[in-house]
Design a protein around this nucleic acid. Structure first.
Length: 196
DNA sequence: ACGCGGATGGCCT
DNA sequence: GGCCATCCGCGTA
């Protein structure tokens, strides 16, 4: 069963922590492709200088201000997609960036989705399929057509509850790849599993 | 095991 | 015009 809207209707850092261990699923023409969430980052809202919502509601950031449990998918660096789960109430503007998955279902489709234009010498190892926010969107086939989709059921993209992550397996660090509010401890990593 | 820079395009100032 | 919530390949060690 998909996580309900009430799960996402909380502060982004709480949701980011609790999403660890849940399963992100994409229903595609090839079948379901999915992975266990092992890394997240919280973007708290308009007062968070690193958050896209700090710019206000523009065409790009539109769905970040949607209701809790909305997918906010954006395009970055001219070639990558990244997927977020919107948190807090409709109109607020907080979200959780999903940064890494442990591959679960549709692994051969992931490998094909992740192979670029040129042929690879060696096929990608499982651990390299989804260990980054751009990589996991490519692997699952997530792009702008999923921007604004509901993650709580009734759309091809959904998040299903998994085994809760115990505190001693959760690492909390500053967020990666940003230039503002660089010290805020809002990155959550589930270790003692695959990845990193 | 690092560190660096190029790719690539949309959006905001 | 410059800045990105990134990725990958190539350089030095």
């Amino acid at each position: 069963m998909s996580l309900p809207a009430s799960f996402f209707d909380r502060e982004a850092d709480v949701v980011a922590r609790e999403l660890l261990g849940a399963e992100l699923q994409h229903d595609t023409p090839d079948g379901v492709i999915s992975g266990r969430i092992v890394e997240t980052e919280a973007y708290l809202g308009p007062h968070d200088p690193a958050s896209h919502s700090a710019v206000g509601r523009t065409p790009r950031t539109w769905h970040m201000f949607g209701p809790p449990g909305t997918a906010y998918v954006y395009f970055i660096y001219g070639m990558h997609w990244c997927v977020n789960a919107v948190t807090r109430e409709d109109g607020y503007g907080a979200a959780v960036l999903i940064r890494a998955l442990e591959p679960l279902r549709g692994i051969e489709h992931m490998r094909r989705n992740r192979s670029g234009i040129k042929p690879r010498v060696r096929p990608l190892a499982d651990r390299d399929l989804c260990n980054g926010p751009g990589k996991l969107c490519a692997a699952l086939g997530i792009d702008r057509t999923r921007d604004g989709a509901s993650l709580t059921g009734g759309s091809p993209l959904t998040i299903v509850a998994g085994l809760p992550a115990p505190d001693h397996e959760v690492l909390i660090t500053p967020r990666i790849g940003i230039s503002r509010a660089v010290e805020w401890p809002l990155r959550f990593v589930l270790s003692a599993r695959g990845k990193e």
